[in-house]
Computed example of a mutant assay.
Amino acid sequence: MTFSLSGFDLDAFVAATLAEDLGPGGDITSAAVIPADAIFAGVMDSRDAVTIAGLPIAAAFFRALDPSVEIEMLVADGDRVAAGTNLMRLKGSARAMLTAERSALNTVQHLTGIATMARDYVDAIDGTGATLLDTRKTIPGLRALEKYATRMGGATNHRMGLWDAAMIKDNHVAVAGGVAQAVGRAVAAGIERIIVEVDRLDQIQPALAAGATHLLLDNMGPATLREAVALVNGRVPTEASGGVRLDTIRAIAESGVTYISVGRLTQSAPAADIGLDFESA
């Protein structure tokens, strides 16, 4: 199985992660305790009901240390599984598998946690017509992976970085001298996608008149959001953002906004409880 992700070098990620764990002395425990020719079979399983993300990346850690390892994928990324579900079976060098175990589990636990939270939020707005977006609130160096995990949970990626759309926020507006001035400069620079954050209804018309192509409605309650959506009247997409929680997202979605962005998907998702149990081959 090959895993390819735009903007992500799997081989470099695996090598750097293993190098961090192995350090200058290698896995001294496995080298001392496990015979060099020992073979172990093992199964990776989930102790909770989750949405899976990161299994191919976990497998890459084992293959990096034992290219001949036998791996059987029992589920796929994006699958929703019940507690106790077996995810992957593997058989290979015991030393290699034990050395790679922590790096593999750390990755799949983190990404599955993100995918699971994203799925919960997507389910909460089902039928409203609103789309869940992630944000740039990612761990440095892991953005491509974390945004992949949100997709596995059913969310849609927002900006991947500072380069693919302008997002004019409150500090930009303050320095530029106002919403209209900030948007006008982005238009003059030839930027096609111009997202503008507004936190008051009276900022909507100036932003649209200046050329905004997307409005981010920041920290507005459902009633204010409904007013904002009515003022925009379909001229550009609208996005609710700021303090969105699982218990509030449904009411926000029912205001009629196009999108809802949730930073906690990548910023605060708890790791999934996934383990790897070895059995003698």
Results as ranks from 00 to 15, higher is better:
residue 171 N to H: 14
residue 259 Y to A: 05
residue 173 V to A: 00
residue 61 F to V: 05
residue 259 Y to L: 10
residue 238 T to K: 06
residue 35 P to R: 14
residue 106 N to K: 06
residue 78 G to W: 05
residue 9 D to T: 08
residue 178 G to V: 01
residue 216 L to G: 07
residue 135 T to C: 05
residue 94 A to N: 09
residue 104 A to G: 14
residue 263 G to Y: 11
residue 90 L to I: 06
residue 230 A to L: 04
residue 20 E to S: 10
residue 52 I to G: 00
residue 22 L to F: 15
residue 68 S to I: 15
residue 139 I to T: 15
residue 22 L to W: 12
residue 231 L to C: 07
residue 114 I to C: 03
residue 77 D to C: 08
residue 95 R to H: 08
residue 197 E to Q: 10
residue 109 Q to P: 01
residue 48 D to A: 12
residue 155 A to N: 08
residue 140 P to F: 12
residue 206 P to M: 11
residue 258 T to Y: 02
residue 251 A to N: 10
residue 118 A to H: 01
residue 136 R to A: 10
residue 14 V to P: 00
residue 192 E to Y: 09
residue 53 A to P: 02
residue 269 A to I: 09
residue 83 A to R: 14
residue 56 P to K: 02
residue 124 A to Y: 03
residue 173 V to W: 00
residue 120 D to R: 14
residue 162 L to A: 06
residue 102 R to K: 13
residue 85 T to P: 06
residue 254 E to D: 15
residue 164 D to C: 12
residue 51 T to K: 00
residue 143 R to D: 07
residue 101 E to C: 03
residue 263 G to R: 10
residue 272 A to Q: 02
residue 28 I to W: 13
residue 142 L to D: 04
residue 280 S to V: 14
residue 214 H to M: 07
residue 85 T to S: 14
residue 150 T to L: 01
residue 199 D to V: 04
residue 62 F to T: 06
residue 264 R to T: 13
residue 89 R to V: 05
residue 262 V to A: 09
residue 21 D to R: 12
residue 77 D to I: 06
residue 259 Y to H: 15
residue 153 G to V: 02
residue 2 T to R: 10
residue 145 L to G: 04
residue 231 L to S: 11
residue 120 D to W: 03
residue 275 G to H: 05
residue 192 E to W: 07
residue 119 R to V: 00
residue 220 M to E: 06
residue 249 I to M: 05
residue 46 S to M: 07
residue 258 T to D: 10
residue 271 A to W: 12
residue 254 E to N: 11
residue 156 T to R: 13
residue 147 K to H: 14
residue 139 I to P: 01
residue 180 A to H: 05
residue 275 G to A: 13
residue 26 G to E: 13
residue 26 G to V: 10
residue 76 A to T: 14
residue 152 M to R: 09
residue 32 A to P: 02
